[in-house]
Protein backbone atom coordinates (compact mmCIF):
# COMPACT_ATOMS: atom_id res chain seq x y z
CA UNK A 1 0.00 0.00 0.00
CA UNK A 2 1.30 3.42 -0.89
CA UNK A 3 1.42 5.84 1.95
CA UNK A 4 3.83 8.52 0.77
CA UNK A 5 2.38 10.26 -2.24
CA UNK A 6 3.90 12.92 -4.47
CA UNK A 7 1.89 15.17 -6.77
CA UNK A 8 3.44 16.52 -9.95
CA UNK A 9 1.64 19.15 -11.97
CA UNK A 10 2.89 19.19 -15.55
CA UNK A 11 2.52 22.15 -17.77
CA UNK A 12 4.03 25.42 -18.88
CA UNK A 13 0.56 26.89 -18.67
CA UNK A 14 0.75 26.74 -14.87
CA UNK A 15 4.35 27.97 -14.66
CA UNK A 16 3.67 30.86 -17.05
CA UNK A 17 0.50 31.89 -15.30
CA UNK A 18 -1.74 31.01 -18.25
CA UNK A 19 -3.82 28.65 -16.14
CA UNK A 20 -4.60 28.81 -12.47
CA UNK A 21 -3.76 25.47 -10.86
CA UNK A 22 -6.95 24.08 -9.36
CA UNK A 23 -6.32 20.40 -8.77
CA UNK A 24 -4.16 20.44 -5.64
CA UNK A 25 -6.95 21.84 -3.52
CA UNK A 26 -9.11 18.96 -4.68
CA UNK A 27 -6.57 16.14 -4.39
CA UNK A 28 -4.75 16.87 -1.13
CA UNK A 29 -7.75 16.74 1.24
CA UNK A 30 -8.96 13.55 -0.43
CA UNK A 31 -5.57 11.87 -0.21
CA UNK A 32 -5.36 12.77 3.47
CA UNK A 33 -8.88 11.53 4.00
CA UNK A 34 -7.96 8.23 2.38
CA UNK A 35 -4.99 7.82 4.70
CA UNK A 36 -2.14 8.81 2.38
CA UNK A 37 0.69 11.08 3.37
CA UNK A 38 1.27 13.75 0.75
CA UNK A 39 5.03 14.05 0.81
CA UNK A 40 5.67 16.54 -1.99
CA UNK A 41 4.05 18.67 -4.67
CA UNK A 42 5.85 20.06 -7.70
CA UNK A 43 5.11 21.94 -10.91
CA UNK A 44 7.29 21.00 -13.87
CA UNK A 45 7.66 22.49 -17.38
CA UNK A 46 6.78 20.80 -20.66
CA UNK A 47 10.32 19.56 -21.14
CA UNK A 48 10.87 15.80 -21.30
CA UNK A 49 14.48 15.65 -19.94
CA UNK A 50 13.55 17.92 -16.99
CA UNK A 51 10.45 15.90 -16.19
CA UNK A 52 12.29 12.57 -16.48
CA UNK A 53 15.06 13.77 -14.18
CA UNK A 54 12.64 14.97 -11.53
CA UNK A 55 10.32 11.97 -11.74
CA UNK A 56 13.24 9.62 -11.10
CA UNK A 57 14.25 11.66 -8.08
CA UNK A 58 10.71 11.89 -6.68
CA UNK A 59 10.14 8.15 -7.10
CA UNK A 60 12.98 7.53 -4.67
CA UNK A 61 11.14 9.55 -2.04
CA UNK A 62 7.58 8.39 -2.57
CA UNK A 63 5.51 5.25 -3.06
CA UNK A 64 3.24 6.80 -5.65
CA UNK A 65 3.47 9.81 -7.94
CA UNK A 66 0.27 11.38 -9.16
CA UNK A 67 0.82 13.32 -12.39
CA UNK A 68 -1.72 15.76 -13.74
CA UNK A 69 -1.76 17.34 -17.16
CA UNK A 70 0.11 16.70 -20.38
CA UNK A 71 -1.77 13.65 -21.64
CA UNK A 72 -3.67 15.38 -24.44
CA UNK A 73 -3.02 15.14 -28.21
CA UNK A 74 -0.90 18.30 -28.77
CA UNK A 75 2.91 18.46 -29.02
CA UNK A 76 3.22 20.15 -25.63
CA UNK A 77 1.58 17.13 -23.97
CA UNK A 78 4.74 15.31 -23.00
CA UNK A 79 3.69 13.32 -19.93
CA UNK A 80 3.33 9.97 -21.68
CA UNK A 81 6.80 10.29 -23.27
CA UNK A 82 8.40 11.20 -19.96
CA UNK A 83 6.67 8.43 -18.01
CA UNK A 84 7.60 5.85 -20.68
CA UNK A 85 11.25 6.89 -20.43
CA UNK A 86 11.23 6.66 -16.64
CA UNK A 87 9.51 3.26 -16.78
CA UNK A 88 11.99 2.14 -19.45
CA UNK A 89 9.32 1.01 -21.92
CA UNK A 90 8.17 2.23 -25.35
CA UNK A 91 4.87 3.93 -26.05
CA UNK A 92 2.43 1.54 -27.68
CA UNK A 93 -1.06 1.83 -29.06
CA UNK A 94 -3.43 0.45 -26.46
CA UNK A 95 -6.39 -1.20 -28.17
CA UNK A 96 -8.68 -0.67 -25.19
CA UNK A 97 -7.85 3.02 -25.10
CA UNK A 98 -8.31 3.25 -28.88
CA UNK A 99 -11.75 1.66 -28.61
CA UNK A 100 -12.73 4.04 -25.79
CA UNK A 101 -11.67 7.03 -27.87
CA UNK A 102 -13.38 5.80 -30.99
CA UNK A 103 -16.57 5.23 -29.07
CA UNK A 104 -16.91 8.98 -28.63
CA UNK A 105 -16.65 11.36 -31.51
CA UNK A 106 -16.05 15.05 -31.07
CA UNK A 107 -17.41 17.47 -33.60
CA UNK A 108 -14.46 18.95 -35.49
CA UNK A 109 -11.98 16.61 -33.83
CA UNK A 110 -9.22 15.12 -35.96
CA UNK A 111 -9.10 11.33 -35.43
CA UNK A 112 -5.48 11.20 -36.59
CA UNK A 113 -4.38 13.29 -33.63
CA UNK A 114 -7.07 12.19 -31.22
CA UNK A 115 -5.77 8.64 -31.44
CA UNK A 116 -2.43 9.83 -30.02
CA UNK A 117 -4.13 9.73 -26.63
CA UNK A 118 -4.41 5.94 -27.00
CA UNK A 119 -0.61 5.61 -26.94
CA UNK A 120 0.49 4.75 -23.43
CA UNK A 121 3.66 3.21 -21.97
CA UNK A 122 3.78 -0.51 -22.69
CA UNK A 123 2.30 -2.52 -19.83
CA UNK A 124 0.44 0.46 -18.35
CA UNK A 125 -2.93 -0.03 -16.69
CA UNK A 126 -5.60 2.30 -18.03
CA UNK A 127 -7.45 4.70 -15.75
CA UNK A 128 -10.96 4.99 -17.22
CA UNK A 129 -12.26 8.39 -18.23
CA UNK A 130 -16.07 8.23 -18.29
CA UNK A 131 -16.43 11.78 -19.62
CA UNK A 132 -14.25 12.07 -22.72
CA UNK A 133 -12.95 8.55 -23.23
CA UNK A 134 -9.29 9.67 -23.21
CA UNK A 135 -7.85 7.51 -20.42
CA UNK A 136 -5.21 8.13 -17.81
CA UNK A 137 -2.70 5.40 -17.09
CA UNK A 138 -0.63 3.85 -14.34
CA UNK A 139 2.79 2.30 -14.54
CA UNK A 140 5.81 1.95 -12.27
CA UNK A 141 4.41 3.91 -9.34
CA UNK A 142 3.21 6.77 -11.56
CA UNK A 143 -0.46 7.52 -12.18
CA UNK A 144 -1.16 10.05 -14.96
CA UNK A 145 -4.39 12.03 -15.02
CA UNK A 146 -5.69 14.82 -17.24
CA UNK A 147 -5.17 18.34 -15.92
CA UNK A 148 -8.72 19.45 -16.67
CA UNK A 149 -10.32 19.60 -13.21
CA UNK A 150 -13.68 18.20 -14.30
CA UNK A 151 -12.03 15.12 -15.83
CA UNK A 152 -9.55 14.65 -13.00
CA UNK A 153 -12.27 14.84 -10.37
CA UNK A 154 -14.31 12.24 -12.17
CA UNK A 155 -11.36 9.85 -12.46
CA UNK A 156 -9.49 10.45 -9.22
CA UNK A 157 -11.32 7.84 -7.16
CA UNK A 158 -9.26 5.26 -9.07
CA UNK A 159 -6.30 6.11 -6.84
CA UNK A 160 -8.05 5.36 -3.56
CA UNK A 161 -7.26 1.62 -3.34
CA UNK A 162 -3.59 2.38 -4.06
CA UNK A 163 -3.20 4.82 -1.20
CA UNK A 164 -5.69 3.65 1.39
CA UNK A 165 -4.06 3.50 4.78
CA UNK A 166 -4.68 4.46 8.37
CA UNK A 167 -5.92 8.00 8.59
CA UNK A 168 -4.18 9.87 11.40
CA UNK A 169 -5.97 11.44 14.34
CA UNK A 170 -6.09 15.20 14.16
CA UNK A 171 -6.72 17.75 16.87
CA UNK A 172 -6.91 21.45 16.15
CA UNK A 173 -6.73 24.16 18.79
CA UNK A 174 -7.88 27.70 18.02
CA UNK A 175 -6.88 30.71 20.07
CA UNK A 176 -6.05 34.39 20.09
CA UNK A 177 -2.46 33.78 21.21
CA UNK A 178 0.25 35.32 19.03
CA UNK A 179 2.53 32.68 17.52
CA UNK A 180 5.58 33.98 19.35
CA UNK A 181 3.86 33.36 22.70
CA UNK A 182 3.87 29.62 22.19
CA UNK A 183 6.82 28.93 19.91
CA UNK A 184 8.74 27.64 22.95
CA UNK A 185 5.74 25.60 24.11
CA UNK A 186 5.59 23.96 20.69
CA UNK A 187 9.22 22.97 21.07
CA UNK A 188 8.50 21.40 24.45
CA UNK A 189 5.48 19.36 23.36
CA UNK A 190 7.20 18.28 20.16
CA UNK A 191 10.12 17.01 22.23
CA UNK A 192 7.89 15.12 24.64
CA UNK A 193 5.71 13.72 21.81
CA UNK A 194 8.08 13.10 18.89
CA UNK A 195 5.49 10.82 17.27
CA UNK A 196 2.95 13.66 16.97
CA UNK A 197 3.29 16.23 14.21
CA UNK A 198 2.54 19.78 15.33
CA UNK A 199 1.92 22.73 13.03
CA UNK A 200 0.97 26.33 13.72
CA UNK A 201 -1.05 28.26 11.17
CA UNK A 202 -2.13 31.89 11.48
CA UNK A 203 -5.78 32.51 10.68
CA UNK A 204 -6.42 35.94 9.28
CA UNK A 205 -10.16 36.02 9.55
CA UNK A 206 -12.93 35.06 11.92
CA UNK A 207 -12.85 34.79 15.66
CA UNK A 208 -9.36 33.38 16.05
CA UNK A 209 -5.81 34.46 15.40
CA UNK A 210 -4.15 31.07 15.09
CA UNK A 211 -4.79 27.38 14.90
CA UNK A 212 -2.37 24.74 16.05
CA UNK A 213 -2.80 21.30 14.51
CA UNK A 214 -1.67 18.03 16.09
CA UNK A 215 -1.50 14.90 13.91
CA UNK A 216 -0.62 11.49 15.21
CA UNK A 217 -1.15 7.78 14.64
CA UNK A 218 -2.90 7.25 18.00
CA UNK A 219 -5.80 9.39 19.18
CA UNK A 220 -4.96 9.20 22.90
CA UNK A 221 -1.36 10.16 22.32
CA UNK A 222 -2.30 13.01 19.98
CA UNK A 223 -4.92 14.23 22.45
CA UNK A 224 -2.41 14.13 25.31
CA UNK A 225 0.01 16.22 23.28
CA UNK A 226 -2.70 18.78 22.46
CA UNK A 227 -3.83 18.91 26.09
CA UNK A 228 -0.27 19.47 27.28
CA UNK A 229 0.02 22.35 24.83
CA UNK A 230 -3.33 23.75 26.04
CA UNK A 231 -2.22 23.64 29.68
CA UNK A 232 1.09 25.32 28.97
CA UNK A 233 -0.63 27.95 26.84
CA UNK A 234 -2.91 28.74 29.78
CA UNK A 235 0.26 29.15 31.82
CA UNK A 236 1.33 32.07 29.63
CA UNK A 237 -2.13 33.64 29.82
CA UNK A 238 -3.90 32.42 26.68
CA UNK A 239 -6.92 30.23 26.44
CA UNK A 240 -7.87 27.71 23.78
CA UNK A 241 -11.26 28.90 22.55
CA UNK A 242 -12.08 26.08 20.21
CA UNK A 243 -10.90 22.50 19.89
CA UNK A 244 -11.80 20.07 17.13
CA UNK A 245 -11.04 16.36 17.41
CA UNK A 246 -10.99 13.98 14.50
CA UNK A 247 -10.28 10.35 15.34
CA UNK A 248 -8.03 8.46 12.99
CA UNK A 249 -8.59 4.92 11.79
CA UNK A 250 -6.51 3.46 14.59
CA UNK A 251 -8.54 5.15 17.33
Amino acid sequence: MATRVGIVILGDEVLKGETKEANLAFMIPLLNEWGAEVALCAVLPDDVPTVVRHLRMYLEETDLLILTGGIGPTPDDITRDAVAQVAGVPLVLNEEAKAALEARSFQGGNPEYRILMAYVPEGAILIPNPLSGAPGFYIGGMAAFPGIPRLLQEMFGWVKPLVAGNRKSRITLYSMAPESSYAGIMNEVMSSHPDVGVGSYPVNEGEFRVRVVFRGAGFERTSACASQFEEKLAGVGFKVLRRTEERGDDA
Binding site: K239, V240, L241, R242, R243, T244, E245, E246
Partner: peptide, 15 residues
Protein backbone atom coordinates in the same frame (compact mmCIF):
# COMPACT_ATOMS: atom_id res chain seq x y z
CA UNK B 1 -22.53 28.84 14.34
CA UNK B 2 -19.80 27.06 16.28
CA UNK B 3 -19.33 24.05 13.99
CA UNK B 4 -20.31 23.32 10.42
CA UNK B 5 -21.18 20.62 7.93
CA UNK B 6 -17.55 20.20 6.86
CA UNK B 7 -16.79 19.11 10.42
CA UNK B 8 -19.32 16.27 10.51
CA UNK B 9 -17.70 13.30 12.22
CA UNK B 10 -15.49 15.45 14.43
CA UNK B 11 -15.89 16.45 18.06
CA UNK B 12 -15.81 20.22 18.42
CA UNK B 13 -15.37 21.98 21.76
CA UNK B 14 -15.96 25.69 22.13
CA UNK B 15 -15.23 27.90 25.07
Amino acid sequence: IVAGPEEAGKRVTNS
